[in-house]
Design a protein around this nucleic acid. Sequence first.
DNA 1: TCCAAACCTGAAGCTTCCTTCATCTAAACA
DNA 2: TGTTTAGATGAAGGAAGCTTCAGGTTTGGA
Lengths: 223, 223
Amino acid sequence: MPVTLGPIEKPRKQPIQARSTATVEAILDATVQVLIAEGKDRLTTTRIAHRAGVSVGTLYQYFPNRRSLLQATLRRKLVTVTEAIEAACLEHRGERLSAIVEGVALAFFRAKMRDAASSLALYAVSSDVDGLRIAEELRLRSGAALAEALESAPERLSVPTKEAVFAIQAALSGMSRTLLETRMPVRDHATVQRNLVVMLCSYIQAVRAVDALQAVAVPRARQ
Amino acid sequence: MPVTLGPIEKPRKQPIQARSTATVEAILDATVQVLIAEGKDRLTTTRIAHRAGVSVGTLYQYFPNRRSLLQATLRRKLVTVTEAIEAACLEHRGERLSAIVEGVALAFFRAKMRDAASSLALYAVSSDVDGLRIAEELRLRSGAALAEALESAPERLSVPTKEAVFAIQAALSGMSRTLLETRMPVRDHATVQRNLVVMLCSYIQAVRAVDALQAVAVPRARQ
DNA sequence: TCCAAACCTGAAGCTTCCTTCATCTAAACA
DNA sequence: TGTTTAGATGAAGGAAGCTTCAGGTTTGGA
């Protein structure tokens, strides 16, 4: 996969007056709305602008191209989730490992499922827009917060913190993504969430330093 | 997101002679190759045909449109992984829960990581092509196999099999996707894989019928 | 009140790519 | 060897959407 670095993007006008700040927000909102209502195939700049109540020209005054608009939209959503995780990490600092993990998992889920439709819709554009870079950046950010939180716990881990953080993040994002993508009815979300918490908590117990081998027989990976 | 059902697709020529069967395979292979080498933005029908050593016209004799070609390519990959899971489920029938889970997890990983580049590349086109439908279909298929395997174990679960299956599938796909997307060096794969197996095995222990509460204090999900 | 800066407009140019189809070649078969 | 059917070709039609830019409107301050 080629790294579409994109040349240094032409700088665009920064919103100065209140009017234009509102315009930019309206454009970002409209992007999500069109995406949800019409799907990525009909997510054209003209349609977005129209929905935002402005003309295409205006759109191009704040975003150098379609791509950067979608990136900004995606980033806005991911930042929200990241901040929710960071807040949970702070809130549970110093607590027991499983309390931290549970707190973070629940916070993550809440943030991701608030406005589930937009979370789902944005998955679809991510690959058009190098969403992986953005996701990676934010994964590192929330990963740092989680690592810090885990190390503030009274217990030790028997595996490197990095490994545990990766495993937890992967399970979290995988579970929420699968949940959204299968369009599971909302009333079942609580059940899935409970299973996820069980999974993460029993994992973190299993990799606690002292009694890891006692709590669960850790299987060696073959091969 | 609108359901792009696509009208009933015009039936195309079925390969009859050996020559044309080879052509179809070459086109599918070329699709993956172009995708990996040039990225989804340059994945044009002309380029695919050229890489396959045929002309565009030939391509359109076997696929009614670009979309169906990409779907076929995606499906071919996912079917491989699904079959690996099914095989593992059969192989471990009747064993202990954690043995089944471990066996399936390892089989899944092996299948997914064999030719990791194509797995990663195909994620990118999935959303252009209603890949969710295909993924969902195959998720159900491998889910059925896994459910059957879990119920063949000597132990019982304290949660509905469906729930456990969903949780395991979600964690598996999430972990492998995250692994691929972060482009983690291959030498670290084993470590991640080991953590995943620990996570899944300790989960399945936690939701065993008898001593679920003893092995791990199952936290109640708040809210 | 008037000017300059900020902001907005939208028709049309431009590029890109999918898809078709009239025509040609190769294979099977009598 | 002649005929029929399968398979292959690729130039060109057509549709679609991104982006620009020349010119209009609004705002804030002098």
